[in-house]
Design a protein around this nucleic acid. Structure first.
Length: 435
RNA sequence: GGCCCCGUCGUCUAGUGGUUAGGACACAGCCCUCUCAAGGCUGGUACACGGGUUCGACUCCCGUCGGGGCUGCCA
């Protein structure tokens, strides 16, 4: 059997949609699983929308997800060019063939293809056999009166020219497939195997489109999601390993993935679960990796630019790592590690207004001053010692202290936090709060 | 409207004639604990409906209902 050749053929619309990304992923997985080739082809026949920037967004999204292509823009291949805008001669040749064989004709300046009025059966690898009677199919336009070729034609021509063996695409194309099969037949080309994958829907069940929350891969890149997490989540929309595993390394998915075990029902997109999964991946990352991921976000928030001490940033990240689900939570939660003018929550302010708490904060100052090493262990010992001597619970020192040094009522372990803050900053904030 | 696909907890799914219908997210409670998380434990919630077939249906068939897609000189 000839080796598998699959393709992802997006049109540059200015974004990479999660549905498109999932289609690309399944094509890529199938190619990797079978040892075949994954081809990227840009369907940029609509010149107005197809800017270099729009094309770059697709490349960036695919690369971010780790979906490398074997043939296509940037990597070449013998069956290019891989931009439809550069293939107009090829399409013209095929239209001529259709015209001279009589299976296409001119009408109102456009060229129409004679749709056969006979039944056809799609032997779909996912949907099973699907029969279309095709009795009333109108003759489709394959070249517009302005001379530009239409999607159905270019799609089929390119699949023929590029030797595509398996067409893996969204189920929204299932109804188009009889047209495509007729075109393959009229051109004397073998019909590829089809695999129509279910669609990704909004939480409310409507079709997910550009504007919907979470629809753009670019959003995940900008908010510093872990690409492996997004990819892992996408794998599970319409496919599963059939056991109870969900967090799966990609090479394991490559090994297990097959078109036969792709679901047939549409799936709704659940951002909460994606975020949970992102948290799972995030926690497995080193503080350094998280720092690199979150760097643009921290810089944008004015917290840690290029000149910031990476060791300090990583120490801060170490404190938060277990608590984060998304890297973009970091700037909002770690302000007080980077600036002295951090916000104070109302509950924290109330705590600091309490005279009893302020008295405890005053006691903390000399206790911390006298410490040899300002470590988490040392400050904790000092606080617990102070609590014991004053007959109070440690919490009556801990909570006000947290409020005093961070302006928050929740955060990382207090003592580890103090260590990262350092003695000097800690004492300044304690004195200021208790004054 | 016509044609096509689909229908297991709120969501993602496992299940291919006999299961206490499993897992995960979310939710609730408990444990842990300096807070918040994380983690652990526990709990509730599902086979769309109606007919068949069968000793026996979530599993097979038909119908209904519901959701989605296509029906362009968009892709």
């Amino acid at each position: 059997m000839a080796s598998v050749r699959v393709r992802f053929a997006p049109s540059p619309t200015g974004m990479l949609h999660v549905g498109g990304a999932r289609t690309a992923l399944f094509n890529w997985l199938y190619a990797r699983h079978t040892g075949g080739r994954f081809i990227l082809r840009i369907e940029d026949t609509d010149r107005a929308r197809s800017t270099d920037e729009a094309v770059a967004i697709i490349f960036d999204g695919l690369r971010w997800l780790g979906l490398d292509w074997d043939e296509g823009p940037g990597v070449g291949g013998s069956l290019g060019p891989y931009f439809q805008s550069q293939r107009t001669e090829i399409y013209a040749g095929y239209v001529d063939r259709l015209l001279s064989s009589g299976t296409a004709y001119e009408a109102d300046g456009a060229i129409r293809f004679r749709m056969p009025k006979s039944p056809c059966i799609i032997r779909d690898l996912i949907c099973g056999d699907v029969r279309f009677d095709r009795l009333e199919e109108p003759d489709i336009v394959i070249r517009r009166s302005d001379g530009s070729p239409v999607f159905h034609l270019v799609n089929v021509v390119d699949d023929i020219e590029m030797g595509i063996t398996h067409v893996i695409r969204g189920e929204d194309h299932l109804s188009n497939t009889p047209k495509h099969m007729a075109l393959f037949e009229a051109l004397g080309a073998p019909i590829p195997q089809y695999a129509h994958i279910p669609l990704i829907l909004n939480p409310n069940g409507s079709k997910m489109s550009k504007r919907d929350e979470g629809a753009s891969i670019g959003e995940y890149i900008r908010s510093a999601f872990v690409p492996e997490a997004v990819r892992n989540y996408l794998c599970l929309l319409g496919w599963s390993p059939k056991d109870d595993r969900e967090i799966l390394p990609i090479d394991e998915v490559e090994r297990l993935f097959d078109l036969g075990n792709v679901n047939r029902a549409n799936a709704r997109f659940d951002l909460r679960k994606l975020v949970w999964m992102n948290g799972q991946y995030l926690r497995a990352l080193s503080p350094r990796a998280i720092r690199e991921l979150a760097q643009p976000l921290l810089a944008a928030a004015g917290l840690a630019d290029a000149s910031a001490d990476p060791a300090h940033t990583e120490a801060v990240i170490g404190l938060f790592r277990e608590k984060l689900q998304r890297a973009d939570e970091l700037p909002g939660r770690a302000v007080y590690f980077f600036k002295d003018d951090y916000p104070v929550e109302p509950d924290a302010a109330a705590r600091l207004a309490d005279p009893a708490n302020r008295e405890n904060l005053r006691l903390l100052v000399p206790a911390f001053e006298s410490l040899g090493e300002f470590t988490a262990a040392a400050t904790e010992a000092a606080v617990r010692d102070l609590a014991a001597k004053s007959g109070q619970k440690a919490a009556t020192f801990i909570h006000p202290c947290r409020a005093a040094v961070s302006g928050c009522t929740a955060g990382p372990s207090l003592f580890h936090m103090l260590e990262v803050l350092g003695r000097e900053t800690t004492l300044i904030r304690l004195r200021s709060a208790s004054a």
